[in-house]
Computed example of a mutant assay.
Amino acid sequence: MAVCGTVAEEFEPVRDAFVRNFTALGDRGAAVAVYRDGRKVVDLWAGTRDLDGTEPWQRGTAQVIRSATKGVAAAVPLLLHQRGELDLDAPVHAYWPEFKAHGKEGVLVRHVLAHRAGLPVLDRPLTPAQALDPLPGIEAVAAQTPVWEPGTDHGYHALTYGWLLDGLVRRVTGRGTGEWIADEIARPLGLDLWLGLPAGEEAAGRAGRTGRVEDVEPPSGSLRMRPKRSVTAAYDDPGSLTRRAFGAITPFPDQNDPAYRAAALPATNGIATADALARFYAALTGEVDGVRLFEARTLAAARAQESAGPDRVLVVGTRFGLGYMLHGSASPFLAPGSFGHPGRGGALGFADPESGIAFGYVTNGFRKTVTADPRAQALVRAVRAALDAGR
């Protein structure tokens, strides 16, 4: 298996695991990057970047990262809080008056980030065309009645999380979440990461000049999560919160449509390289080339447990901080203090402050995994093994 890139000597187990992802787990095109204490120690890519399997993956090839977008988007309200522009304990309607309707007076900003707002579904799902417009989703969650008393329980807001967050960000800053990320996060760090792909990047990818953004293959295999049967049964039930949460846009847009990639859906359609994901998380926990995003108090808040236990949407037990999944059986990261976010289909980004590790993995070989893709997990285990061997 031809693998391109570099790996520090002590992290050779990651290269071995990356090769096995192709030879044993069926990956088709992917990249993995790992930083340690702000220094890149793994930068690998392999396979093909196009659906025909003829064009090799290149340095800088980027992919849709699905819900790994949530971890990037969560940094926006946390940085606004860090700057004194947003109070995490304020009611959402203090910034967004229209949101107060239909029993949502008690929804706090931190409830939105911790999936405790009680708004994982829309009674009237959006069409793809509505979803790609920034306003209908925001208006829909403002008009929605909670399905449980806000703040009393948690359930994964698979799609509505993005509109809830974007509604807040727009009212506090006057900019959409995608614009804010571009200006305040991606540009200072030099990230190949977008929430709303610029037309020039779309055109470059399709012309094959830089190998930037290529199509993903349709998800294959059965829906998978831990434990498998319970979530599959919930997803198969049209009336379940699981099915309704993932069906807040019906039908889901074609992820290879340029119009989808140009839109900004903070819950699900970010586009990034593996290096950008890892570099982003490295900057949350420490300095990267002179840039650090989170102060110590913000980092502590991001990964302090806000929600834990049976998830009303994902059915299994989940743990959330403020906008980030925390290490657990449903979302295994590196260690108990790790925080980050997987993307349905395979992508994963996270940081582990105690070890100084920041990790990013992207793939175009989508699977029907929700949180614990076996390819990403194999790479995480390899990072852990490399750290253990170095002790």
Rank of each mutant, 00 (worst) to 15 (best):
161 Y>R: 00
187 R>S: 14
130 Q>Y: 09
162 G>T: 03
160 T>R: 08
170 R>F: 11
146 P>G: 09
153 D>C: 02
138 I>W: 00
195 L>Q: 05
185 I>L: 15
172 V>R: 11
193 L>M: 11
135 L>F: 03
118 G>K: 01
188 P>A: 13
162 G>E: 07
183 D>A: 15
190 G>A: 10
182 A>F: 05
189 L>F: 10
194 W>S: 08
154 H>M: 08
165 L>C: 09
158 A>D: 14
180 W>K: 01
156 Y>K: 01
143 A>W: 08
186 A>W: 01
114 A>Q: 04
120 P>H: 04
145 T>N: 02
139 E>F: 01
122 L>P: 00
129 A>M: 11
121 V>A: 03
189 L>I: 12
126 L>V: 13
163 W>A: 09
122 L>F: 04
135 L>P: 04
159 L>Q: 01
121 V>T: 15
124 R>C: 07
128 P>L: 13
149 E>L: 14
175 R>N: 08
184 E>S: 05
169 V>A: 06
125 P>R: 06
158 A>V: 11
132 L>M: 15
127 T>Q: 08
132 L>C: 13
163 W>Y: 13
174 G>W: 10
157 H>C: 01
148 W>I: 11
128 P>E: 13
138 I>S: 00
179 E>D: 13
141 V>F: 09
150 P>E: 00
118 G>F: 00
177 T>F: 03
181 I>M: 06
117 A>N: 07
193 L>W: 07
120 P>R: 03
147 V>F: 13
121 V>Y: 02
124 R>G: 05
194 W>E: 06
123 D>G: 15
139 E>G: 02
184 E>I: 01
128 P>M: 13
139 E>S: 03
137 G>K: 01
142 A>Q: 10
167 G>T: 10
160 T>H: 05
153 D>Q: 12
198 P>I: 15
196 G>Y: 07
176 G>F: 04
181 I>G: 08
117 A>T: 08
156 Y>V: 01
186 A>V: 01
185 I>W: 08
167 G>K: 00
165 L>I: 04
157 H>W: 10
122 L>T: 00
114 A>M: 05
159 L>S: 04
169 V>Y: 03
114 A>N: 08
145 T>L: 06
126 L>P: 13
187 R>H: 11
169 V>F: 06
122 L>S: 00
193 L>N: 04
196 G>L: 10
196 G>A: 12
134 P>D: 07
123 D>Q: 15
164 L>W: 03
127 T>F: 09
139 E>P: 00
149 E>Y: 10
195 L>R: 03
119 L>F: 08
175 R>E: 12
164 L>T: 06
126 L>H: 04
142 A>C: 15
167 G>L: 05
185 I>K: 00
143 A>G: 10
194 W>I: 02
183 D>N: 06
157 H>I: 00
192 D>V: 14
142 A>I: 04
169 V>C: 08
130 Q>E: 14
141 V>C: 09
176 G>Q: 05
198 P>G: 14
120 P>S: 09
172 V>E: 12
181 I>H: 10
198 P>E: 15
174 G>E: 11
163 W>I: 02
162 G>F: 03
143 A>C: 04
153 D>N: 10
